[in-house]
Amino acid sequence: MKPPFPRTGCVYLVGAGPGDAELMTLRAVRLLRQADVVVYDNLVSKDVLDFVPPEAERIYAGKRRNEHTLRQEQINALLVKLAQEGKQVVRLKGGDPFIFGRGGEELQTLAAHGVAFEVVPGVTAASGVSSYAGIPLTHRDYAQSCLFVTGHLKDGTADLDWPSLVRLHQTVVIYMGLGGLPEICHQMMAHGADPALPIAVVQDGSLSTQRVVTGTLATMPERVKQAGLKSPCLTIIGEVVKLHDSLAWFTPAMAVTAT
């Protein structure tokens, strides 16, 4: 069988999925178990890190809103340095590294320095969290398209393409949008969205601490505040949210559903 690692240093950009370790790919688990160094993000769960052997070096490079352990430029340089030392490096990111994970930026730096790399995709938060919340992203009766957007842009604003977010028969999934939720709801209604449009915010999706709060564009900011939701959260907007009550199958230790 072909060995998983080459003889020279290499960086493996690995998606850890939305949180539940059993949603990781076999390739991801195999690489974690044989890594020299694992550079991991804030959204990587403890259960996922349990696959890392004790002898492997662990480097936390997590980012929270306005709180960065390492700047992105420092992470890029670190990956290059570790690989040039001949180490097998797993760069572990929550969800999928190519969907709002800055994976492309990191690979550009590796490519510029001639560092070998491989990408191992993961279950992105949109599909993993929505599945665990019992909310199909598409449905013939409700949504024929799905739009992924980030609620936290590079400059810290949430200046989104609002007209594209209010189209009919569409599901909108917002990553990292908890802090800007009042403004997002306000702007969508200001651009023509129905104030009664259903919306769900899911905290800790796929984990035992998962919580789901549902409401409408008009009521959601206050309901999220009352529920005390904390990041990481994923926001799902669209008529498909109506299906949550009947399709929710996952029973975590804590669950909050407001209707």
Score class of each variant (00 low, 15 high):
237 I>W: 09
161 D>V: 07
154 K>S: 15
96 D>T: 13
61 A>Q: 03
176 M>V: 08
171 T>D: 05
46 K>C: 11
145 S>W: 05
24 M>C: 03
82 L>E: 07
80 V>C: 07
140 R>E: 08
72 Q>Y: 11
61 A>P: 07
168 L>M: 06
128 G>N: 06
35 A>P: 09
217 L>N: 01
47 D>W: 11
240 V>A: 05
19 G>P: 11
203 Q>I: 06
53 P>Q: 02
2 K>N: 15
113 H>E: 01
216 T>Y: 06
52 V>F: 05
62 G>K: 00
15 G>E: 08
68 H>K: 01
191 H>R: 06
221 P>E: 04
63 K>C: 07
137 L>K: 05
14 V>W: 02
44 V>Q: 03
67 E>F: 14
106 E>N: 04
109 T>E: 07
258 A>W: 15
114 G>P: 10
89 V>M: 00
26 L>A: 11
44 V>N: 04
12 Y>A: 12
82 L>D: 02
73 E>W: 10
207 L>V: 09
204 D>R: 03
51 F>H: 14
83 A>W: 02
97 P>D: 04
90 V>H: 02
53 P>F: 00
81 K>D: 11
229 L>E: 02
62 G>C: 01
244 H>E: 12
205 G>I: 01
194 D>Y: 10
39 V>G: 00
139 H>E: 00
169 H>Y: 14
32 L>M: 11
237 I>K: 02
38 V>Q: 01
192 G>V: 15
233 C>G: 08
124 T>S: 04
232 P>K: 01
101 G>M: 04
